[in-house]
Write a protein that binds this DNA or RNA. Structure first.
Lengths: 110, 110
DNA sequence: GAACTAGTACGACGAAAGTTGTACTAAGAC
DNA sequence: GTCTTAGTACAACTTTCGTCGTACTAGTTC
């Protein structure tokens, strides 16, 4: 009676559940902000390992989880990789202009 | 040889010294965000005690200091009161659109 | 002068956050 | 099957953060 194995999944907050303070907190960490800018520049999905972060895998997992739980990135499995993409439309609809201004400000090494 | 007592002063970061992550962190606390929105709505200077925050004076001092050191508010003494005003022009010039979008998003209880 | 008001400084405490190592799982390559 | 790759889970540790109480300072009022 072994059931069909469910595909691996992760939970994401709905757009209505996004909290401004949580988003700001998630983006207030330099490492996470760099992840988001890289993701925005790429315009596509990127695996966690594509970022070459100067921290261990554990820490990397932690930061991606913070971004996911804040509703900033959406993650899905593809093979052994976990692909990340920016929830730009969701963020733009709930917090108009916020991501744009942050990305613009982050671009000029502030 | 008692010298003339210096007027009380506080240090503020220059516009060039503002850091995006520090600003985002300062605004990621609900209490501090409410201070900033109140200040923005008032359009003028407000003393610390004008906010009726649900915390002690010590904690209040702490939060105003975080905002000041992040470059979000400018403080000056007026009698025994410490007046606070938003550094809107400075913020707008360094991080265009950031404060506007945050204030707009904070307005609708997110 | 004394009393009061507004806020600061400092130390303490608990909670949260960032980092890590070890052990583990799932998918792919062989 | 084994081996490798990519990432997770969990416990531990360290640092930071938010909060407070007590003691203090500066200015105002009397």
């Amino acid at each position: 009676m072994s059931a069909e194995p469910l595909p691996r999944q992760v939970g994401h907050p709905l757009s209505e559940e996004l909290r401004l303070t949580e988003v700001l907190h998630a983006l207030s960490d330099p490492l996470r902000l760099s992840i988001v800018t890289t993701l925005a520049e790429s315009g596509t999905e990127l695996s966690c390992s594509a970022f070459h972060l100067p921290v261990t895998k554990s820490t990397s997992t932690h930061h991606f989880r913070v971004l996911r739980e804040a509703g900033i990135v959406r993650q899905r499995y593809e093979g052994t990789a976990r692909m990340n993409r920016l929830r730009r439309e969701d963020l733009d609809s709930v917090f108009p202009g916020l991501l744009t201004s942050i990305l613009a400000s982050a671009g000029q090494d502030n």
